[in-house]
């Protein structure tokens, strides 16, 4: 349904981001979607002349995803957010808050991910 969406592997992400930067694209944001089967869709949105280009990267829960913040600095906030709220393992973020950008110490880890909610309910039953 999304126009200009390309499925790419996570190794290609860095190359495509670099390529987009050279071609004059602006980094808009990234979106993380929990598919519920242990994998996440991470969409990176780029914009040029108000036309979006989207890269969809499918990552497993434990897999590492290298940050693109060394290419686009403006990705720091969104990558930190995805790391905290979904528990994605994003490495090499330019400013890494270590899971404390939005959440404090006693908050539940990765509250937006789907599995976590179930675990929380079990805790409540005890």
């Amino acid at each position: 349904m999304i126009e200009n969406a390309f499925d790419i592997s996570k190794e290609l992400l860095q190359i495509e981001a670099q390529d987009s930067k050279i071609k004059g694209y602006r980094f808009v944001t990234a979106t993380c979607v929990d598919l519920g089967n242990g994998t996440f869709d991470v969409l990176y949105h780029f914009d040029k002349n108000l036309e979006l280009k989207n890269y969809r990267v499918n990552v497993k829960k434990e897999e590492e995803l290298t940050s693109i913040s060394n290419i686009y600095f403006s990705a720091i906030l969104v990558e930190n957010e995805m790391k905290e709220l979904f528990g994605l393992n994003i490495t090499n973020i330019a400013i890494d808050y270590g899971g404390h950008m939005l959440l404090s110490d006693d908050d539940l880890n990765s509250p937006m991910a789907k599995q976590q909610i179930v675990i929380e309910e079990r805790k409540g039953d005890k």
Partner: peptide, 16 residues
């Protein structure tokens, strides 16, 4: 809805 994601303008302006 399965997912609703908002990227607000201030979020994009903080890096600047």
């Amino acid at each position: 809805l399965d997912r609703l994601r908002v990227r607000t303008p201030t979020f994009a302006n903080i890096p600047t």
